[in-house]
Simulated assay, not measured.
Amino acid sequence: MKKEDCFYLGKIVKKYSFKGEVLAKLDTDEPELYENLDAIFVSLRGNLVPFFIESSQLHKSELLRIKFEDVETEADADSILKSELYLPLEFLPKLEGNKFYFHEIIGFKVIDEHFGEVGTIKGVNDSTAQALFEIDRDGVEILIPMNDEFIDKVDKPNKTIFVKTPEGLIDLYLEDE
């Protein structure tokens, strides 16, 4: 299983018991969707290794307490501490309407109500306070905040996102040309 075929689910943050149980912090608004998994991929030394889950339950609402098969001791648990957890993309719940996962909109066209066709999404920058569409327009990068007020419609079948940005925002990136 390759990382690009998976999504980041969370990270093992601490040991829970001397029997090898661990607590994982999940990167999701709906941790209950992942309470009854059979297996999960653990990133170890750059490889995704499948681990089978003996039991798991939510702990203090956002942490998942996991008992893996073959992780029996504190030393075993130490060896996977701080490891990232991944699941295959097909485990992602389907999103309806204008909701989308960042990975699924790469390559979508962006059309602005005032400006017209802006370009193609080549990535999402979510390292800032507000996530940004990274759009390529003939080699020029245009950043548009992923703000609900700006996103008019997400047309998944036609791989197009319609936006309504403040007038002049897109032109700021094109003034030097």
Rank of each mutant, 00 (worst) to 15 (best):
L37A: 09
K2D: 06
L87E: 02
K14W: 05
D78P: 15
K153L: 02
K25R: 02
A39L: 11
G20A: 14
L87Y: 00
F150N: 01
E84I: 14
Y173C: 11
K164Y: 02
I135R: 07
S79P: 06
Y101N: 02
L143H: 04
R45S: 12
Y8H: 15
V118A: 02
N147L: 15
E62L: 15
K156R: 05
A131E: 07
E104M: 11
P166V: 05
Y16C: 10
L92V: 07
G10I: 02
L9S: 01
Y34F: 13
V110M: 07
K94E: 09
E141Y: 12
I121Y: 00
L95W: 13
V49N: 07
I142V: 12
D136H: 07
I142R: 06
L26S: 01
E4L: 09
V42K: 04
D155G: 05
E177C: 07
G46A: 01
L33N: 12
F18N: 09
E35R: 15
L23Y: 00
M146E: 05
I40G: 00
E84Y: 10
G139Y: 05
K60Q: 10
P145Q: 13
S43I: 08
L64I: 08
E72A: 14
E35K: 15
F68W: 08
F41V: 00
K159Y: 06
L89C: 05
L44Y: 11
D136F: 02
I170C: 04
E175T: 07
P166T: 02
I105S: 05
N158Y: 11
D76I: 05
K94H: 12
K94N: 11
L132R: 03
L37K: 03
G116A: 11
S43Q: 14
C6D: 03
I111E: 09
